[in-house]
Simulated scan of single mutants.
Amino acid sequence: MKISVGEAEGQLADLVRRAETGDEVILTRQGRAAVRLVPVKAPQSVAERERILAAAREEGRAKITPGPSAARSQDFLYDDDGLPA
Rank of each mutant, 00 (worst) to 15 (best):
G10D: 15
A47N: 12
L37V: 00
A70V: 09
V40M: 05
A62E: 04
T21D: 09
A56W: 04
R72T: 07
I26Q: 06
P43S: 02
P39F: 06
A56Y: 07
T65Q: 06
A62L: 10
P84C: 11
A70I: 09
A55Q: 14
G60D: 12
A54G: 02
G82F: 10
A85F: 03
E59V: 01
K41G: 03
E48F: 02
E59I: 00
A47G: 15
E50M: 08
L15C: 09
Q44L: 09
P43C: 01
E48A: 11
Q30K: 01
P68Q: 13
L15Q: 13
L37N: 02
A70M: 14
A42H: 12
R49V: 14
R17G: 06
T21V: 11
E9M: 11
D81A: 03
E7W: 10
P84D: 13
V38I: 06
R57D: 09
P66A: 11
M1T: 10
D75Y: 12
P43V: 01
Y78H: 01
A54H: 07
A34W: 10
T21F: 14
Q11F: 14
A62K: 00
Q11W: 10
P39N: 07
E24F: 03
G67S: 02
D23S: 08
Q44W: 10
A33Y: 01
Q44P: 07
Q44C: 03
D79A: 02
S69K: 01
V16C: 05
A8K: 08
A33S: 07
E59F: 03
Q30W: 08
G82I: 02
S4Y: 14
D14V: 00
A34L: 11
V35S: 00
E7F: 04
R57F: 04
R18N: 07
A34I: 00
M1W: 15
V46W: 05
E48W: 07
E7T: 02
E24W: 03
V38F: 05
D14F: 04
R72H: 14
A71S: 11
L15W: 14
Q30L: 06
V35H: 02
D79Y: 08
R17K: 07
A71H: 00
I3T: 15
S73V: 08
L37F: 04
R18T: 03
V25S: 12
V5I: 15
S45P: 10
S45W: 15
S4T: 15
G60E: 11
E58K: 00
R17I: 01
